[in-house]
Design a protein around this nucleic acid. Sequence first.
DNA 1: TTGTACGCGTTATCAG
DNA 2: CTGATAACGCGTACAA
Lengths: 329, 329
Amino acid sequence: MSSIRDIAQAAGASVATVSRVVNDSGYVSAATRARVLKAIEDLQYTPNASARQLRRGASHMVGVVLPALDVPFFGIMAHVLERELFRHGYQALICCTDESADQEARYISTLLSQKVDGVLAISVLADVTQYRRFVDAGIPIVALDRDLPELSVPSVKADHLAGGRMMAEHLLALGHRKFAVIGAPAHSPPVLARVQGVVDRLAEAGLVAQVHLGAVHDFDACKDLAQDVLADRPTAVIGTTDIAAIGAIHAAIGMGLAVPGDVSVIGFDDLPAARYVLPALTTVAQPLREIGAQAVAQLCAMMRGESLLPVAAPELRLILRDTTSAPRG
Amino acid sequence: MSSIRDIAQAAGASVATVSRVVNDSGYVSAATRARVLKAIEDLQYTPNASARQLRRGASHMVGVVLPALDVPFFGIMAHVLERELFRHGYQALICCTDESADQEARYISTLLSQKVDGVLAISVLADVTQYRRFVDAGIPIVALDRDLPELSVPSVKADHLAGGRMMAEHLLALGHRKFAVIGAPAHSPPVLARVQGVVDRLAEAGLVAQVHLGAVHDFDACKDLAQDVLADRPTAVIGTTDIAAIGAIHAAIGMGLAVPGDVSVIGFDDLPAARYVLPALTTVAQPLREIGAQAVAQLCAMMRGESLLPVAAPELRLILRDTTSAPRG
DNA sequence: TTGTACGCGTTATCAG
DNA sequence: CTGATAACGCGTACAA
């Protein structure tokens, strides 16, 4: 409510002096500083961020564009990004696109209007040309969990291809020979990379897997997908995500199959939900917190105009729990 | 990058005219409008939100203060609020406090600086006096899932007391007589209200329950809690949340008890995770989407200076799944 | 050490 | 229908 002028008047000083104490820049005598601070306290003065941004050119805000918050994977990621940005002095502007290109475009306009200092993007859309607007406006941008093709923008993500190989490797080592891969969404680059990793590794062992990818990534859809696939009696089902794998477990048990006795199941991500199922899900853990922190560090460097940080790809890790075992004799 | 003046120059018009076409206010001839629109297109003009806020007084931003995004309950709530606010033309400023009073205070300062038009608060802290600063600044605020005592601020929440009664009622109807209640966090008003509801209903049946509330609300902590409680062999365990109930299921099965054969378990919230466990969890569904939408509607009314909307308490609903049955013999 | 004055990008008012 | 201009709150040269 009260502006810098009110404080100046109350403290018997000029606006310039008040500004100096607020930003502690330049010289201010102890006496006047005290008077100013008192006035600030009395009048509950809060600097106006808009006026500052207008004057300084920096908004200290960062746009975070992602499909949703009510999906654990994105919720966790958003949390990490928000916390990390705050730690670095930035306010996150979280934008949920609901996987709609239209919403995404509108949000990008908003972020441009807000003059965000940078952008973190986790898009699940095929067409990401919209993001060129940030590049054109000279706004630094970092992609998460995928690349933004043709925009030559840095991206931070795990090696999903290697992740796919890990899943296949584990089951192969247990002695499995008949595989099915299920998951969603079929257009997601990281999901496709994992599938490719599985297919590659199996091919090396002279095997082929049934691959069934669906359009919607939820429990019910994945369960249905798994049900179809299980009719063929694979000894191992590879879920492209934990949700897919959990769907597969439910499908198997619903069909009277024991897990892992009759069929082994493995997932990917290691979300909290992987521990909730019974039996608890064996999965490949993706270090979401590390990925998020790395992306923010990268973006902050760019916003400071520094050169890009060299990055080590975040490490994937196999988490052994109770849904995989050797196939029945 | 380009400002309204650049557009004016390019279109051979005045800034006032450009402003008029941008906001389509006042009269502009079709010809000049066309020229201006072309210039806007050519120069990729985007209005500066800070300048607007400075001039107009409204920021079209709403602060959303909550403890976390990586916890399904809050993630879902945040998603609903964000989407709903966007629909109403507001940009959400999501602030994760990590349950820290210090963070919360710093965020409140930030929101005050940003001159948010309103605030939605889901605090889990006991001391909410910080929120008085919004009231003092004349900024509308709506509380979710709890009240903000002594601030006379509207709140939107389910009837947790009734929810507690529902849980007890269901198990009583099945014939249970020996109950345990477990959950966390012990200081959460809605959790305490649910416990009270359970206790009240059981008292009416002449029964007393063992109540064990923990400080941290996660799977492992709740599982440990349940393990202790199960030593007494209650026939029914009431979780104050789905997470607590899922912990109880794991504890029971880990101890060789069948669910629901040896012990029935019920939860609260109906998060997606309730369907992931096996057996699937019987629970009381809280209409999060409705609560969120109601809170946003309420806040929007206040921001428009309208009187408060009359609100019907969001309905709780018992979801019967596979973890409750009549007690043995 | 302190104060004056300008400009950041908009919009609203008022005159033409 | 259009244009000039003041003001929003702040930071900073520059002057004192």
